[in-house]
Computed example of a mutant assay.
Amino acid sequence: MKLTRSGGQTAAGPQDWFTGTVYIDPIRDPDDQSAVGCAHVRFAPGARTAWHHHPQGQTLYVTDGIGYVARRGGEVQEIRPGDVVDIEPGEEHWHGATPDRFMAHVAIQEADENGQVVTWLEHVTDADYQRG
């Protein structure tokens, strides 16, 4: 068993990756014992990720608020506490809060053989976001 104490490491989400105000609390980074990484991510109303994809896929577990998730070419779907979103490897997608509610989720993903976890793409346009 390995216990990692919380270090109070909340960080602002980088502007290259997010639109709006986002806070990230790392839970674990991939290491030599496990390729799994995860973080608790909190989105202010209207905040969202840029388009991105994960080589091994991603699982989102919504912990609070109301949000949106969409895959490239798909419909924007509403997500709520307790919802689990399984995103396929390589599937381009985005997720974030609705315009008038905060949303938080735990994001779980696995690094590939090169240690890569995510590839960030362009920002989600307001038109794509407003389809929710």
Rank of each mutant, 00 (worst) to 15 (best):
E92A: 09
R48A: 12
A44F: 07
I24N: 11
R28E: 04
R71H: 09
Q33H: 12
D112Y: 02
F102T: 14
A111G: 03
G65Y: 02
T21S: 14
Q109E: 13
D126C: 03
R72F: 13
V84E: 02
A47H: 02
D112E: 10
C38S: 15
H93A: 07
V106I: 15
L60F: 09
G74E: 06
P30S: 13
V85G: 02
P55K: 01
V22E: 07
H54C: 01
Q58A: 15
E78H: 08
R101P: 05
Q109K: 15
G73L: 10
A97H: 02
Y23M: 09
F43Q: 03
L121K: 14
T119V: 09
P45S: 08
G65N: 05
D128R: 03
A50Y: 07
S34T: 14
G115D: 08
G20H: 06
S34Y: 08
I79H: 09
D25A: 03
Y129T: 11
D86N: 15
L121H: 13
Q109R: 14
Y61A: 03
I27L: 15
V118W: 00
A39V: 00
R72Q: 12
S34L: 10
D29T: 07
P30Y: 12
F18V: 09
T63Y: 06
G57Q: 10
D64S: 14
A107H: 04
D100E: 12
G82Y: 08
G73V: 08
V69A: 06
V117R: 11
G67C: 09
A97C: 05
A47E: 08
M103F: 11
H105N: 14
W51V: 03
R101V: 03
T63I: 06
R28F: 04
A35F: 04
H105L: 05
D31M: 06
H93Q: 08
P81N: 01
G96K: 11
Q77P: 00
D29C: 04
D31N: 15
P55G: 09
V106L: 05
V84M: 11
H53L: 12
P45Y: 05
A35Y: 07
H52G: 05
Y68F: 15
P30L: 07
G37A: 06
I27P: 01
Y23T: 13
G37H: 09
A47D: 00
E92M: 13
Y61I: 11
R71A: 08
Q58D: 12
R80N: 06
P99E: 04
E122H: 10
L60T: 08
A104Y: 02
E78K: 12
G67E: 12
Q130P: 00
G74V: 06
V117P: 09
A111M: 01
Y68K: 01
A70E: 05
E92F: 08
V36A: 10
F43S: 05
G115M: 10
Q116D: 13
E110C: 12
P55V: 10
E92Q: 15
T49C: 10
R28V: 13
G46A: 03
G20P: 00
W120D: 02
Y61K: 00
G20K: 12
A107C: 06
G115N: 05
G115P: 02
E122R: 14
N114P: 02
I108Y: 02
G90W: 04
T49P: 01
G20I: 08
V62T: 13
G73I: 09
E75M: 11
I87W: 00
V118H: 01
D64A: 14
D64L: 09
